[in-house]
């Protein structure tokens, strides 16, 4: 009894001796998160209150689920919710693998300067705001003055061209396409950095074993960055209900609003600018809860596949 207890105690001391510094390192981060993220968290209560931006939040009247009911009451919100799901899913399906593929392609470049150029260029669209991008999209896709018109004239076609930016059939494709194009760079750079961390000896060994390029890419590179992929996927899924406010706000128009309106643009319209904080917070909370449920699910799956992975 005594000895086991003592050895347990010893073990504890040994553990603490070994790890105390790691705990010390965590302190600034935890203090930061607590002060700047958890202290203001009481603001979430606005979702269940009638708070219009005057006076203290604590003193506002509790109204239960009234704000959520108000949101779901209108056709426009239900439509936005539906669009939100369609657009985010499409963005996930097309947007998530794209940077992985691009990173693998760039990794295959053997010429140093060429690699640098490609690496730098993929990140550029991310720096240009959606408002400017929209101007560019208009310059290209306008059926009357755009580049596509000029190209069509050159090849001898002078008939009517579709207006991709004002057509309900095509507009979601435009949203997803431009999202993939603009957002690809950040992911690509992350994966490229992860690839540099893979032990070079693994490649050398595989080469000696006669593995081809594809086999190496598959077995070594992809396996090596699996952890980063899963982490990014989980984070992405947590934010799945954020279907891209600034993008859609900048590029959509009244002809396609029925297929492009998402929760965030809807909430913005009904009055974030007029200080209707309760509705905006309720919508935000709704999105977060969906994100949380999906994250827990994904995390659970990824741990089934690989116990070491996952965020939680």
């Amino acid at each position: 009894m005594n000895t086991t207890e003592r050895s347990k105690w010893k073990k504890q001391i040994g553990y603490f001796r070994r790890y105390w510094m790691l705990y010390a390192m965590l302190i600034p981060g935890i203090v930061y998160i607590t002060v700047f993220k958890y202290v203001p968290m009481y603001g979430v209560s606005i979702a269940f209150k009638d708070y219009n931006g005057f006076g203290k939040i604590a003193e506002a009247e509790w109204v239960g689920l009234k704000n959520f009911r108000r949101l779901f009451e209108t056709n426009a919100f239900r439509r936005a919710f539906y669009n939100n799901i369609i657009i985010s899913l499409a963005k996930l399906v097309f947007g998530f693998p794209a940077p992985i593929i691009l990173a693998l392609m760039i990794d295959g470049i053997r010429t140093k300067w060429a690699k640098r150029i490609v690496q730098t260029s993929v990140i550029l669209p991310d720096f240009v705001s959606w408002v400017v991008i929209y101007g560019l999209m208009y310059a290209i896709f306008s059926p009357n003055t755009g580049v596509i018109r000029q190209v069509a004239s050159v090849i001898g076609y002078n008939g009517k061209l579709p207006n991709l930016l004002a057509d309900k059939e095509t507009f979601r494709a435009v949203i997803v396409g431009s999202h993939v194009w603009k957002g690809m760079g950040i992911g690509t750079v992350t994966y490229l950095a992860a690839i540099t961390g893979i032990d070079q000896q693994l490649y050398d060994a595989a080469t000696i074993d006669g593995a081809g390029r594809w086999q190496k890419t598959w077995h070594i590179t992809l396996t090596g960055i699996r952890g980063v992929i899963i982490t990014l996927l989980i984070i992405r899924i947590g934010h799945i209900m954020n279907a891209g406010f600034s993008q859609i706000f900048a590029i959509s128009n009244s002809a396609v609003v029925s297929v492009a309106d998402i929760i965030d643009t809807y909430v913005y319209r009904i009055g974030l600018t007029q200080g209707r904080f309760s509705l905006a917070t309720a919508a935000g909370l709704f999105k977060s809860v969906i994100g949380l449920v999906l994250v827990l699910f994904t995390n659970w799956i990824s741990k089934k596949v690989d116990p070491d992975s996952g965020i939680m």
Binding site: Y134, G135, Y138, S142, P143, N144, T145, N163, L165, A166, N253, S254, A255
Partner: peptide, 11 residues
């Protein structure tokens, strides 16, 4: 001018 739905104001 036929692009009235999509044209930016400055354009």
């Amino acid at each position: 001018e036929p692009d009235f739905v999509t044209i930016p104001r400055m354009e």
